[in-house]
Design a protein around this nucleic acid. Structure first.
Length: 468
DNA sequence: TGAAATGTTGGGGCG
DNA sequence: ACGCCCCAACATTTC
């Protein structure tokens, strides 16, 4: 029998099932204090902060029926957590690992501190298939190419079955000062997000089950069409740990359909593999969001273009597919993956604006913003990474629109000015001056000229090197 | 996880 | 019937 309480420090893991830290803490028999520490946010809330806070509130509401709650603190966790430990006389702290450069630094420091004062500190895996430092090539080096990484990761074995939610909880009953009860105030711009999201572990599992039943079989064929609901939509849940990759892997592997759907299944799991890969790259390169992986691209002649950047952010570039995506992002906090590529490519190549500015905008506005995936994918689009689209591969926003939104349904959903445009002209409304709505902007750059400019910029940094 | 430019081929209109 | 031109349609190369 263990009388001293234990702390479960929840960070990005608001779930009861497949939560290794929570399960391990429960098994000690100690009364548990669930703690979440949010940082001070002097610069305000981002979309993922909004999603996390909503998730936390939902998680807490669910805990009421178990007579438990998450105690929420605001401030510097490196200072607060030891204080909380001391205040309740906790014998042990449990958490699931995080892998961002700042977080891992804090956690390592806390482990040292707790070790020095005799408090147990136990950390667990859970947010990824593989710990980022474990997948290496034969030379013991981290992979730089996704396909090689993923092959090695898959050969290392598939994830085991997820942990069930603990059956019983014993919560710490004492009082604790410093925890905050007051409601946060949401910035006005978050009000449009509510309509597009559901919160909670059950909602995440529902979404997974529906995806596996209805969409997984044709995932490979339909995932690129933004007006079809053919993607899993799990990214926000993965982001805040309402669901784990291991749970997804097992649900997908158990899906009916047999060999017929093997390719679709593999394709979908590989997308989750990209998420792991991004974290492994970030682990090796903490500056992934700030520095081009291929250094020669630090010399690209990025333009300073505040009005172009603003037009891009607000979805007023005059290219309907780009604008639809950027407006979907602003209103709903997500953007279809295909459109993310087109919109990102447009900023970097058509506007020749530094990919870091796009990375920052996505970091503020995406409810599924993931520091590793976001940075890696921006570098992929900009062609500055090791395993990236070549810089000369420039997407044509009109062709992409005709190909992936042939009926214009996606554009009409997000760009009301074009609601009554014809299927023929909706992708390039400026080509039909008669039908073009007066309140929809003309293209802020000419595609052909922008393409030439981007190629010239690329030509400038690669020197005399003629390879492709 | 492109697109544009350039090259090739083959059918059909036409003198 | 034949050569010639035009231009889809497809293939290859280049960015």
């Amino acid at each position: 029998m263990n009388d001293k309480p234990a702390i479960v420090w929840l960070r990005e893991d608001f779930r009861l099932a497949d939560n290794a830290a929570l399960t391990a803490a429960t098994q000690t028999g100690a009364p548990l204090l669930l703690v979440h520490i949010r940082p001070e946010r002097p610069s305000g809330m981002t979309a993922v902060d909004w999603f996390r806070e909503k998730t936390l509130a939902h998680f807490n509401a669910g805990l009421q029926s178990l007579s438990g709650k998450v105690h929420v603190f605001t401030g510097d966790s490196a200072r607060l957590l030891p204080e909380i430990v001391a205040r309740i006389g906790a014998a042990a702290v449990f958490w699931n690992r995080r892998y961002d450069p700042i977080g891992r630094e804090i956690d390592a420091g806390l482990k040292r501190e707790f070790a020095a004062c005799g408090t147990e500190a136990h950390s667990f895996a859970g947010a990824l298939f593989h710990e980022p430092w474990t997948v290496k090539n034969r030379a013991g080096q981290p992979f730089k190419i996704f396909s090689a990484y993923w092959r090695a990761a898959c050969e290392a074995g598939s994830p085991g079955p997820p942990l069930p939610a603990p059956r019983e909880f014993k919560f710490f009953a004492g009082s604790i000062t410093g925890a905050q009860e007051q409601q946060l105030s949401w910035p006005a711009w978050t009000s449009s997000l509510d309509a597009y999201h559901e919160f909670g572990e059950a909602a995440a599992q529902d979404r997974l089950a529906r995806f596996v039943a209805d969409d997984l079989g044709h995932y490979e064929d339909e995932r690129d069409f933004p007006d079809r609901d053919a993607t899993s939509g799990l990214s926000p849940y993965l982001r805040v740990g309402q669901i784990t990759p291991r749970q997804v892997w097992n649900a997908v592997s158990d899906a009916p359909g047999g060999l017929a759907h093997a390719a679709a299944r593999a394709k979908f799991l590989a997308e989750l593999g990209w998420r792991d890969f991004a974290w492994s790259v970030l682990w090796e390169h903490p500056g992934l969001a700030d520095h081009a992986l291929r250094e020669e691209f630090e010399d690209l002649p990025w333009r300073s273009d505040p009005s172009g950047l603003e037009a891009w952010k607000r979805g007023r570039t005059g290219y309907p597919l780009v604008d639809a995506g950027m407006r979907e992002l602003w209103r709903s906090g997500v953007m279809h993956n295909r459109v993310r590529m087109v919109a990102a490519s447009f900023l970097v190549k058509h506007l020749l604006i530094d990919w870091r500015l796009g990375e920052q905008w996505f970091a503020e506005t995406l409810v599924d913003y993931d520091p590793a995936s976001n940075a890696l994918n921006w570098q992929w689009c900009a062609g500055t990474g090791a395993d990236s689209a070549p810089f000369f591969r420039i997407m044509n926003p009109v062709l992409q629109s005709r190909k992936f939104d042939p009926s214009g349904a996606y554009i009409r959903r997000w760009v009301p000015e074009l609601k009554s445009a014809s299927d023929k002209h909706i992708h390039a409304p400026w080509e039909s001056p008669d039908a073009r709505p007066a309140n929809y902007p003309l293209p802020i750059v000419d595609h052909a000229a922008a393409r030439r400019r981007a190629l010239a910029a690329w030509d400038g940094v690669r020197g005399g090197d003629r390879q492709s």
